[in-house]
Structures are given as structure tokens and as C-alpha cells.
Simulated scan of single mutants.
Amino acid sequence: MKIKGIDVSQWQGDIDFGKVRSAGVDFVIIRAGYGRYISQKDPTFEDNYRKAKSAGLNVGAYWYSYAASEADARAEAAVCMEAIRGKQFEYPIYFDLEEQSQFSRGKAFCSALVTAFCGEMEKAGYFAGLYISRSPLQTYITAEVAERYALWVAEYGSRCNYSGAYGMWQYTSTGKVSGVNGACDCDYAYTDYPSIIKNGGFNGFAKPTEHFLDISGFKKGDKSLGVLALKQLLHLFREKGLTSANFDVSHDGFYDGTEKAVNEILTRWGYTPNGIAGENFIKRLGEEVFLIHNS
């Protein structure tokens, strides 16, 4: 999966996000501001957010850091939250770490700044991440911190040479996109952040209500004659094309294929797919199999 996006700030001026969307761009990461004071909120943030949402784009935000201490980073998180309060974001809220004065203090210091900012954002229900160039990422950020938060790596050229996992890559600062006057940063996302964030109830979204058919019953890892009987019913369902899952009915184990079939059927019925085939599931499945074979 490779999703096209851009990131913008006041330096791009007045943007026609309708044209941006028509150019095949799916998301935009908007600078919310920088530093420790609300007066440093990006003057175009509100307008950019409103127009991007109206154009149907998925939106994230970033906050440029000048933090000289962990306390500064927490203060930046607080003012970032003040700037973005009341809005919904389908992409993470990123801590933008670029200052040489920060890098000069070493890996432990830079990693602590990231943890301080992102930790505050997470406490408040935001899905937090780090924006950083590839070389300082490898030099000044611990592996634990790089793996802990959503990672957006900047490296300009034909490929990103970071060997670790990352969710977004900023591949140029001189991109040309319809609707943007002059050059802008262009990005690819490799992670389905909108689904993760919406389903998790982050960034201003309400977590979807879970609706379970059963909370106990047969589940992955179980082995019994009851599981074998369940799989026979599921096999009849599969014969009618009502599940695409592959599972072996010659043994009594509840493994990946059985779980997939159970979850597909739960989803079809409008329930949360929790992988559990309990009394209610088996009863309803039996009734539907009976109806199918007698229709």
C-alpha cells in the first residue's frame, strides 16, 4: 500500500485543496505551529484544516520543536493541543525534530524529547508520531523510541534508506502539485492510519461501540469434538459461498482459518468480529444452515 500525500504550512500560501484532491492526493499533514506559545500557531492552520476537510482529504498535523528540555517538549505538546483542540485528524500528530541544537546534545536527550512530547499527546487521546530526517533518526533516536511512535522519515531521492519500520516517507521538498503555488513537500504513507485512528478512537474520533454476539465459547487454540462439529457447520456455510475462509475439517483444531470464517460470519451478521463461536453463534449458524439446505 502506497498512499500519496503532501505536507504544508504558511509558506505554501493559499492552497486550492479541491485541485490537490483531484491530483490524486489522499492526505495532507498541516503544520499546526512551533515552539511553546500559542502565538506561534501557524497563521494558515485553521484555513488549511477547514479547506482540506471540505475537499475530502484525510488530515494530520505536525508541531515544529525548539525544545531545550523535556519540560519544554511537554510545554510544546500542551500548546499544540490548544491549537488543534476540537478537531479530528485521520493521520497522527507529529513531533517535528530538526534543530541542530537538539541533535548536538545526543541520542538520549533527543529520544527523551520525543517521549516527553508524544507521551503528553497520548495521554490526551492523540495518536502521536515523530517526523525526522533519516540520518539523524539513525544517529540520535534510540531503536525503542523509533519503534514506539508513528514514524515519518524524510529522505529526498528515489528511495528511503532507513532499514527500520516506518509509516510515512517524505521523498521531496520540491514537489509540484496542482492547487499549490510553488514547491511543496510530498509524501507516501504505507500504513492505514485512518482505520487505526478511527477504530482506536484517537484524534477526536469516538471509539466505535463494540457489539458482541458471544463473549465466551470456542476460540483460536481450542481442540475438541465440539470444535470439529462447529467446523462441519462452517463447511456447509462455505459450500454456499458465505465464507471465503480456508480450514481443514479433518481435525478438531480451531486455528487461523476457522477464526477467519467465524469473524466473516460475525461481520455479516453485524457483530464485532471477536473470533468467538459461543452458544448464540452456534445456534444461529445451525438455524441458517438448516434454512439454506431446505430452501
Rank of each mutant, 00 (worst) to 15 (best):
M1H: 08
K2H: 07
G5C: 11
D7P: 05
Q10W: 09
I15G: 09
G18L: 10
R21I: 03
R21F: 06
S22V: 01
G24F: 01
F27D: 07
V28C: 12
I29T: 11
I30N: 06
R36A: 13
S39P: 01
D42Q: 05
P43F: 10
F45C: 05
Y49T: 00
A61P: 00
W63I: 01
Y64H: 03
A77R: 00
F89Y: 11
Y91C: 02
P92T: 01
I93W: 00
E98F: 02
S101Y: 12
F103Y: 12
S111I: 03
L113R: 02
K123C: 01
A124R: 08
I132N: 00
P136E: 03
T139R: 12
I141Y: 03
E144F: 05
E147N: 15
R148V: 06
Y149D: 08
W152G: 04
E155W: 11
S158F: 12
R159S: 15
N161D: 15
G164L: 12
Y166G: 10
Q170D: 08
Q170L: 09
T172G: 07
K176P: 02
S178Q: 15
G179N: 11
G182C: 12
G182P: 04
G182H: 09
A183P: 01
Y188V: 12
A189E: 10
Y190W: 11
T191V: 14
Y193H: 13
K198R: 15
G200F: 06
G204N: 06
F205T: 12
L213F: 09
I215K: 13
S216C: 10
D222K: 08
S224F: 11
G226M: 07
L228C: 08
K231R: 05
Q232C: 04
L236T: 12
G241S: 08
L242W: 05
A245C: 04
N246W: 00
H251E: 13
G253F: 13
F254W: 03
Y255F: 10
D256T: 15
N263H: 06
Y271I: 12
T272G: 07
T272M: 07
T272C: 07
F281H: 06
F281Y: 14
I282L: 14
K283E: 13
K283N: 12
K283H: 10
V289S: 07
S295I: 14
